Computed example of a mutant assay.
Amino acid sequence: MVRIRVLVVDDHRIFAESLAAALAAEPDVEVAAAGSGPAALRSLERAATEGRRFDVALVDADLGAMPPGVRAANGAEDGVVDGISLVAGVRTAQPHVRVVVLAERDDPRRAALALQAGACGWVAKDCSLSRLLTVVRGVLRDETHLPPALLTGVLRELTAARKHRTESEALVESLTPREREVLRCMVAGLGRKAVAERLFLSPHTVRTHMQNVLGKLGVHSTLAAVALARRAGVGPADLAGDVVERGGQLA
């Protein structure tokens, strides 16, 4: 019998334990639970190292969420990973693991974000065990599962996201090669002086390039430019090595 190894990731202990116990009653399912995003990533890494990797991760959509004014037990939010971010983290660290998001409410926008992050399904927390098992087995066959009531909204969100990405890509294409280099440095979080040193330009020249970038992208701040660049798929400059040619002249 082929066994399915499932990791339940939910910081609501009673729900996680109850779900894990219900799944473990199935003869072909092995279950473990993690109470946070970092703990889940550690469990996945440890299992892979030991040759007993997980097949499916069931992730709480509201993982890490706290009521307004309430802080984490350690007094800070360090290490808190929300559900959608964890989907992307799992898919990056363990691409073979299928991720299904468990949600207390239908939310087309968040469901679309989850799919974009790499999730294979979005399932109500109060669905039946048989329904959940159908989804678990389905995603292992490379199926994508969404509640029918969410489908139209999710498709609308994905279409809108694609439109915004296409528009952002066109704006980035309007930049000169040097302006795109400056934009990648901005995405990497470099300030004007650091960009000048990296591209062998004067701070005045970099300032001009940055103003041109903002103008061509139609935004009024560096943060807005970085957000648009990421939407267009522009990654940060490689800060690990000096890959920039000494083409620029000090001005």
Rank of each mutant, 00 (worst) to 15 (best):
L175P: 13
E17K: 10
D142H: 11
R207M: 09
V87F: 04
R46A: 15
R5M: 05
L214D: 00
H164E: 13
R192F: 07
V213Q: 00
A160T: 14
R5S: 15
R105T: 09
K163P: 00
D106W: 14
T92F: 10
Q116F: 02
R231H: 09
I84H: 00
G218P: 08
A76Y: 13
I84A: 04
A194T: 14
L132A: 04
L86K: 05
R91D: 04
A112R: 00
E173V: 10
A170Y: 09
V213S: 01
G69V: 03
R180S: 08
D82K: 01
A240P: 05
S43D: 11
P27W: 01
A25K: 13
V213P: 01
V135E: 12
G218H: 08
E181Y: 05
L86I: 08
V99A: 11
H164Q: 15
K193A: 15
A196S: 14
V206K: 04
V101T: 05
M186R: 12
L175E: 12
L7P: 09
G118M: 02
V90G: 00
C120Y: 15
V56T: 11
V29L: 13
P68F: 07
A111L: 09
P108R: 00
A32P: 04
G138P: 05
L239F: 03
P203V: 09
A170N: 12
K163M: 06
T144M: 09
L199V: 11
P148W: 05
L150A: 05
R198M: 10
V31E: 00
A112F: 00
A57K: 02
L158Y: 00
R137I: 07
V81M: 07
V99R: 07
A73D: 14
E167L: 11
V244T: 11
D28A: 11
L140A: 08
G189E: 09
R184I: 11
T205K: 12
G75P: 05
R180F: 04
S85P: 02
G79F: 07
R141T: 12
A194I: 11
K216W: 08
L171P: 10
M210G: 08
S130H: 12
E26H: 14
Q94Y: 01
A73E: 15
D242W: 08
S130F: 06
L199M: 15
D60I: 01
A24K: 11
V187C: 05
D55Y: 00
L129G: 13
R91G: 03
H12C: 03
R180W: 02
E197I: 06
R91S: 07
A34M: 02
L133N: 03
R110V: 05
A251R: 10
A119L: 08
